[in-house]
Design a protein around this nucleic acid. Sequence first.
DNA 1: TAGATTGTTAATCGATTAACAATC
DNA 2: TAGATTGTTAATCGATTAACAATC
Lengths: 212, 212
Amino acid sequence: MPNKADNISMSVIKRLPRYYRFLGNLKKNGVVRISSKELSSKMGFTASQIRQDLNCFGGFGQQGYGYNVEQLYNEIGTILGVNNGNKAIIIGMGNLGKAMASHMKFAKSGFNIIGLFDSDKSLMGEAVNGMEISHMSSLGEFCKENSPTVAVLCIPEAAAEDIVRELVSLGVNNFWNFSHYDVAANFPGTVSENVHLNDSLMTLNYQMMNKS
Amino acid sequence: MPNKADNISMSVIKRLPRYYRFLGNLKKNGVVRISSKELSSKMGFTASQIRQDLNCFGGFGQQGYGYNVEQLYNEIGTILGVNNGNKAIIIGMGNLGKAMASHMKFAKSGFNIIGLFDSDKSLMGEAVNGMEISHMSSLGEFCKENSPTVAVLCIPEAAAEDIVRELVSLGVNNFWNFSHYDVAANFPGTVSENVHLNDSLMTLNYQMMNKS
DNA sequence: TAGATTGTTAATCGATTAACAATC
DNA sequence: TAGATTGTTAATCGATTAACAATC
């Protein structure tokens, strides 16, 4: 339920986590109020853009004063759903899946990891971060009992189509996708956020070759 | 040395790895030629955008025919530097660092991992993907001998400033940065590509809350 | 009140899309 | 040659920045 417009552009939404992070730091440092101008110099966005962005969601500031740091932090947190505790499972417990299970602070972003799955039987019983890895064959039963809504896909592209189809049929419609498989294009109605690490690396390489 | 313009926008550059990937698949499937229109329907970009993008770098196509898949694949590969073999080291061998060292196909994107470093002495001697983890105290000597140009930062934000300063003083000026530390802002002249996994997760959460 | 800073409208800039002449 | 499709210019669309009236 966005406050004002229903159609907030992705450009704005992608900046929200950054605002949230900076405001969290300010709050931690005991800063009580901040103006768009001060935020601007700290974050490298223009003051104008900051006011525009925030106003997509509501008038959080006060003329002549600026923004209350804690209030704004909480508002953005709510917009991003950081307290939603979405039930999530990780599919594919290779190195990447393990890194995600043990390294990522999912809770900070509003997710709760409730299950780890892999098709490799030799991984069964192994625990990562205090949670046992389950076999893919138990996925159906698990979903019926626990109703996860999100899957973190740490699987190769070739395996993705079948797995996503199964997940969707089990009511899992949201994906944090590390594979190159294009979930959104093949399963309309699902939501997915893609992380293409190799693409990011190639972009770095390009920048290295073409730095002024 | 870009062929035509010197100032290619980031929007274009970020699409290049995707072109590269699709063309690689086409090539693998034995497709010899493709028109911007066909590519358009496969990739979800407009044909117009595809022609615009490619023309930033040169006239790779042929009127009335389209593009030669293999030639275009190679051209984009060269633009992205996929054969550069940049010497890279990973700093921070926690779960994320280990996942990167073992899971990522760096070579595919033009990078060669030549060293793994951590400040935790209990990790010394441990090997990941056939390469031993070294202690941070040996970083200086290592860099003098091997001249890496890129560092993959799998370290917490708090440790980043000191480590980046050391790396820069040792001639490492390019960073694939998984921490929230803002390298570019604090070390002008360096190149960095940031991967903010938590930001990506929060964006997923937003999309889940606001799907039409 | 005077000063500061927002919320919001208008102007600018850049990126995407459409159109078409050039040409294989 | 006729048909197809590029390379490129022009038109449109969207996002960012500037300006300022509203107001705390």
